[in-house]
């Protein structure tokens, strides 16, 4: 049995890697900064494209962890220092771990929508993010305006903080398009009389079932998709929100009043990864996410011996891909441990 593998980050990538390593007989310690493992998925209600409960996926991963996995929660890694034959992990609570094999699965942060100042998040109460809406769904609450009214019109804004040079993020966050479609359907399921207007640049329905969900949103749920990037939000005296945009298919400027605006916030590099990168000297891409040794052929390895990457620490990824990536990391770790001195 190989021992002493440390996974930093107990989100779904870290959990999937731990479960796979545990299953092939490796002893793993997962360090998670939150009180429970699961990462961002703990905050989601239902997952695209099938609308299955996020909790089911987390329950599955939790059950898969096995006896050889120890998860230590509520612990934050401050720095990781290379040492002869391995790495020393210094936690902010003073705990120290040493290991010869390290998996970084620190995930991502959500884009701070306040940076899109013109959209008024944090200023206008009826402008919320997709994460806020997901929380409403997960807690079983009714979608309402800040005044407690049932919204008659909701605007959903795509690409907030993604593909946007103005905020310095030119990359696509991959999951926002289909999240917007999913959430539009969920609002319509909850509020059949509510009109939904979804403003997009282009809809990247790249994965299996995504396109079907997009068609369903239009055909079954009458969601209005308007190709045009939002220019700005402004607040009316009754706290409803005026959206100023352009319908680029018809070539007309458009002004639309909605009761609630949902901003589909994208991924940004995680603050934990940035901190760790500083002390470990790992490479970052121009987008700020960590770079593997080779993006085509060694997507889970780094140039440092015994240091591996799993999940969205490398860039935006959906739940399916993140879990698969965690398992792929486990294979790379196994291959490394099998041939490495540190395992012996």
């Amino acid at each position: 049995m190989y021992k002493n593998i440390i996974i930093v980050g107990g989100g779904i990538a870290g959990m999937a890697a731990a479960a796979a390593l545990s299953e092939i007989g490796m002893e793993v310690t997962v360090l998670e900064r939150e009180k429970l493992p699961g990462g961002h998925v703990r905050s989601w209600d239902r997952l695209f494209p099938t609308l299955r409960a996020a909790k089911e996926v987390l329950d599955f991963l939790n059950k898969s962890l096995g006896l050889l996995t120890e998860i230590i929660c509520d612990i934050e890694v401050g720095s990781i220092v290379p040492t002869p034959g391995g790495y020393t992990i210094h936690c902010t609570n003073g705990d120290i771990f040493t290991t010869g094999c390290l998996v970084l699965a620190t995930g991502y942060d959500l884009f701070d929508a306040r940076k899109k100042e013109e959209y008024g998040f944090g200023i206008y109460e009826n402008v919320i993010t997709s994460a806020d809406l997901e929380k409403i769904f997960r807690e079983g609450n009714q979608v309402t305006t800040c005044g407690g009214q049932v919204p008659r019109r909701v605007g959903i804004i795509h690409c907030v903080g993604s593909r946007d040079e103005k905020v310095g993020n030119i990359y696509c966050s991959k999951v926002c398009c289909v999240t917007g479609v999913k959430q539009a359907i969920e609002i319509r399921q909850m509020l059949p009389d509510c009109e939904i207007f979804s403003f997009y640049m282009d809809l990247r329905m790249y994965d299996r079932h995504f396109e079907e969900l997009y068609f369903e949103a239009q055909q079954k749920w009458n969601v209005n998709f308007i190709r045009g990037r939002l220019s700005e939000c402004a607040e009316n005296p009754d706290h409803s929100i005026i959206l100023k945009t352009e319908d680029t298919l018809t070539g007309h400027p458009l002004k639309l009043t909605v009761d609630l605006v949902v901003l589909l916030v994208g991924f940004v590099p995680g603050s934990s990864a940035r901190k760790i990168t500083g002390s470990l000297g790992l490479l970052q891409g121009t987008d700020g996410f960590l770079l593997p040794a080779d993006e085509h052929t060694a997507g889970n390895r780094t140039l440092l011996p015994g240091v591996f990457l799993a999940g969205a620490v490398k860039g935006p990824a959906c739940v399916v891909d993140t879990i698969a990536d965690g398992r792929a990391t486990a294979v790379e770790v196994y291959r490394y441990m099998k041939h490495s001195e540190v395992a012996k």
Binding site: F121, G122, I123, Y124, E235
Partner: peptide
């Protein structure tokens, strides 16, 4: 309107 949001930007 939340003035705190504006102050954050300022």
């Amino acid at each position: 309107m939340n003035i705190g949001g504006k102050r954050h930007i300022w």
